[in-house]
Amino acid sequence: MRHKLVHVVWMFALMWSLAACTAVAPVAPAGDAGGTGQTKTIAVVTPYMANATTKYAIEQFEKYAKAKGWNVTVTDTNADFNLLVSRIEDAVTQKVDAIVLGMGDPAQMTKGLEAAQAAGIPVFGLDAGNGPGVVLNITSDNGQLGRETARYLAEAIGGKGNVVMFTHDPHPGVRARAEAAAAEFANYPEITVIEKKHIEVPGPVDFARSVTQDLLTAYPNDGDIAGIWAGWDEPALGATQAIEAAGRSGIVVVGIDGTDFARAEIAKGGPFIASIAQDFDGMAKQLADIIEAYFNGEKPAGDSVQIPGVMVTRE
């Protein structure tokens, strides 16, 4: 029971941290197809195929990998990390050329990764993490997500005024976003971050909505608050609803993740002016290129590659 609960909580934490995002313009597949002539086999293993975001990222990777002439197998263990270890071991037995982890924390599958390492099979993380035997992990640059949205907000309010930040520091990704955003706001001498509010999860939308209501009460005059920066889209939605319900004007909101509901709010032309989407398509494409280079004997320079996000605005 407890085991299962931990999984559900875990899954949930990942789900919101990787909240859905949709495609950017498709990129033409790379012309170059493999180097050695012999068909390569890649095993993609994931615990999270049920998650729309994971599914999308893996499908994009499959597309780019097949364009390179590789065989790709995808295995989903439906959040079962124990089974995931078995599937990695199976892939090792089948002597695949590379293993790709479609999300999921490598720390929870160490035994499988060690087996791959022992067999000399490289493991690549697709928004997973680093761990033993993981040659490289490709992921979003949370700092860039925070910085870009903060800059957009700062410019939207004309570089001056009071800003409220909605944060969730216990989550490392959201924390990195908030730190980068705060640093960006510090570049604007006339912007003051007056409040940093910790947003509780689960239930971030309603929580943020109530907090925003109270902040509007505490700062009752137009101009007291110029903007609200939220570490992810859910609290930005709650803030937007509170501002609209209170009929306050002159407050703009930005979020992060480019979720479908955020895009809908942004399109409405209300207080929610921008979000930023993680570029899973770009991640998948670049990972395929990195693996190809690896097959050709080019070892990557580091064990981590960070992909910038793509702004979602009204334009």
């Binding site: 999860v201 689960p202 239930g203 309603d206 929580f207 909505r209 859910e234 709650g238 609803q241 509901f261």
Partner: peptide, 17 residues
Amino acid sequence: VLTSRLFSAHPTAGEPL
């Protein structure tokens, strides 16, 4: 009531209750 208030349904929205 919560779903009406948020005008959206989040699969874990009620948990804090």
